[in-house]
Design a protein around this nucleic acid. Structure first.
Length: 225
DNA sequence: TCAACGATTAAT
DNA sequence: TTAATCGTTGAG
């Protein structure tokens, strides 16, 4: 049985994304997120910025201790419980934003965190948004970088990626060959370490580096052993 | 009401 | 390895 994937170049639809986030995650590798958001709100839009996803993570709800939805629905995670195809944007570490594509629907939480991407359009604008990047591969390497290169922030929580009129849209891309897809534990997550719900395209320099989550409190006497 | 901490990044 | 920085969370 072959799982459905959209035609390359076509906008993703709500139904196509109303699936388990673990499945959606593998399908989203190679897809393109396109942003027409302006550099400064209120100004005229210019060249869109487009990125091709090379690293994602799946998150679920009540059965996933690492999910923001593990303890139920709140104002913050509300979008993750809503219809598929919308964007869940959250604020983290007091200074960064991260973006997810919502999956499933009807009160069932699920989403795919966008962790790494290659900028395939509007590179100059992307460089303006991330002047600290030392090279183009770093522009969208990491969830907060990826989010900022698209011009996303808290106001964009909940926008519909499948609406042709939306300033941020999701397009299917050429399917990434299964032979180049790698999987492993999610980054920065302390719980569910044994759950390999991070997926990335092998060989891409826009894939972030792995870091274990939680506090690494080395027992004062326990140590090296 | 308060203290703790996080799906991170940039700089030591 | 650590500072930066604040909204969300869970306990009292």
């Amino acid at each position: 049985m072959s799982l459905h994937i959209g035609v390359p170049g076509a906008l993703a639809t709500r139904d196509e994304l109303a699936i388990d986030p673990v499945v959606a995650a593998t399908r989203l590798l190679g897809c393109v997120v396109e942003s027409r958001l302006p550099m400064v709100e209120g100004t005229e839009e210019s060249e869109p910025v487009s990125v091709r996803l090379v690293e994602v993570e799946a998150y679920r709800g009540a059965d996933d201790p690492a999910s923001h939805c593990y303890r139920g629905r709140t104002p913050r995670n509300d979008v993750m419980f809503g219809p598929a195809g919308h964007l869940y944007v959250y604020f983290v570490y007091g200074m960064h934003f991260c973006a997810n594509v919502v999956c499933l629907t009807d009160g069932v939480a699920g989403a795919v965190l966008l962790r790494g991407a290659e900028v395939v359009g509007g590179v100059e604008k992307a460089r303006e948004r991330r002047p600290s990047a030392r090279n183009d591969a770093e522009l969208a390497k990491g969830p907060a970088r990826l989010t900022s290169v698209l011009g996303l922030h808290r106001d964009h929580d909940g926008i519909d990626l499948t609406d042709p009129a939306s300033p941020v849209r999701l397009r299917w891309g050429a399917e990434v060959p299964a032979s180049s897809v790698r999987t492993g534990p999610r980054v920065g997550v302390a719980s569910a370490i044994s759950t390999p719900w991070r997926f990335w395209q092998d060989g891409s320099s826009a894939v972030s580096t792995y870091r274990r989550g939680g506090r690494r409190r080395t027992p004062t006497a326990g140590g090296t052993g």
